[in-house]
Amino acid sequence: MTFFSVNGTAAIRRDNRAQAAADPGPVLQVSKLEVTYYTDLGRAKALDDVSFTLEAGQKLGMVGESGSGKSTLALAMMRMIKPPGRIEGGQVFVGDTELMSLSEDGMRRARLNKVAYIPQGAMNSLNPVIRIGAQMVDAIKAHMPQESRKAINDRCVHALRSVDLDPGVFHMYAHELSGGMKQRVCIAIGILLEPQVIIADEPTSALDVVTQRQVMETIDRVQDQINAAVILIGHDMGLMAQFVDKVAVMYAGRLVEVSSVREMFTDPKHPYARALISSLPNLDNKGVFRGIPGLAPSLLQLPGGCAFHPRCPYAMPACTSDRPEVLTLEHGRRVACHLFDAEAPHGQPA
């Protein structure tokens, strides 16, 4: 049984293919995204000049400390930032559609359809008094009011099958499922309309290792089937090593390094990325805890220049005064650090 046997689904799939053939460019393009929270204590710039691209079928891992802006980035891409937060600028292209310029209603239709967001602790967001199936049907009806009941049901059953759940789950309540199953239900809802981009915010943070592996393998397989780009937000570098193709490191609202997963783990460039990699536990360094010294800066009072300089072992005078621009190094790696000013031949912001 194939996943794409439903008529409507197949049509979408063909559209995607046609689009991909005509335009081999990245499926997701975020440029200069900025978000500010206006709090009583002052302005906090939660996202500052964040730009990156992602191709269909690629997996990007977004790592950083809590408060570094990972979840804000996801919310901004969904245009779900609530006051006192505001999206101050920037563009997000999914395929040819620019999300930031859509109308409210257009954006509502784009959510789940073009970009699906699986929030942190999604499994706790299932309604406990409504059957799983009804919640899935709800999501489809909001986007496809004309769809026949049979087509909707088929779509749900296929989504459940593709995340390895028994179609019987359709008639169950959330409390009848285990944590891993609930998480997979949320993934199933996320892929109902076959979005081009899936953003998963810590999809496995409350699950044990075996279930975690199962859920990640599910996401992997589902992504292959619909050829979506996946952004995995998290702080578990181990999971990143096992799962993603590219790693982006965020610090105080900025992307400080974007590298392929192998380069990130073998030769991290940015001093924060280096500290992050060397703080990882493995089998050889038992009992050695190498946390990153210092505390994450408060977004309300960011240090001048590079926000990392008070904690950075390589800090130079320039770091306290000049904000490092994002440089493009070899293999398309992007780093925002003065250490590499000389290395980047053009020194241009990417």
Partner: peptide
Amino acid sequence: QLLVDSIPWPNLDQRWGEHPIIARE
């Protein structure tokens, strides 16, 4: 063995085990 096999080690050369997981549904 299954538990240890499923640890996501932050090491590119130490991948998740190949054994499929028998799910307990």
